[in-house]
Computed example of a mutant assay.
Amino acid sequence: MGNETVHTYKWQDKFYVGVEGIDLEHKNLLTCLNKLIVAQHLDKSIVLKLADEVILYAQFHFLSEENLMYLLHSRDLEAHCQEHKTVIKTLQNKRGHLEESINHLQDFAEYLVHWFVEHTQTTDRQFADYINHCQAEKDTPEYLIKSLEVAV
């Protein structure tokens, strides 16, 4: 791969899952990735730190989603957690390639975006539908989540 320029990724309406907190975190994850892409011509140490930020934000977001799933008794929790672990492991591996050469940035970005597009429109949308149709009893964790997670 030569010195190709990796382009930023714009938020699209198709990424909305319909749960405000999840949608906000998804936007933030895309922002972290775009920050990394915009900095691709800066010093390698900065690029690596921004790649770390993407991975750490993804870990935060995944934990946040998994906690929601746990509190709402989602049957898909185990499979969702496994998918998240695979993504983090792959991103960490691709980050290692960035240490060898910043030219691997496109591979890092394309992997995350491809997964993000697929995941938001399938797995996360199904979970959002589950949240939005969840009947929660007052004074339960589920009720608190429903009161905080207003559909967009």
Rank of each mutant, 00 (worst) to 15 (best):
D107N: 01
D52I: 05
D76T: 13
A51E: 11
V117A: 03
L72C: 01
V54A: 11
I46M: 11
E110S: 01
I102F: 05
V87D: 03
K85S: 12
H119N: 00
F60C: 08
S101Q: 06
S101V: 07
D43L: 00
A58I: 03
H97M: 14
K89E: 15
L112E: 00
V38F: 06
E110H: 13
K44D: 10
Q106K: 15
Q92A: 07
I55M: 11
W115R: 01
H84F: 06
I102C: 06
F62A: 14
H41D: 14
L48D: 09
D76E: 15
V54M: 12
V47S: 08
K94H: 01
A58N: 06
E65V: 02
N93A: 04
L91P: 06
L68F: 13
V87N: 01
K94G: 03
T120G: 02
C81S: 13
L77V: 11
Q59V: 15
K94E: 01
C81I: 14
G96E: 11
H61I: 07
D76H: 11
V87K: 06
E78D: 12
V117D: 02
E83H: 04
E99C: 02
Q82T: 14
H41N: 12
L56Q: 14
H41C: 04
Q106Y: 10
K94T: 07
T86L: 14
H84P: 10
H114Y: 03
H41K: 14
H41Q: 13
K85Q: 15
E65W: 08
E66K: 03
Q106M: 10
W115D: 04
H80L: 07
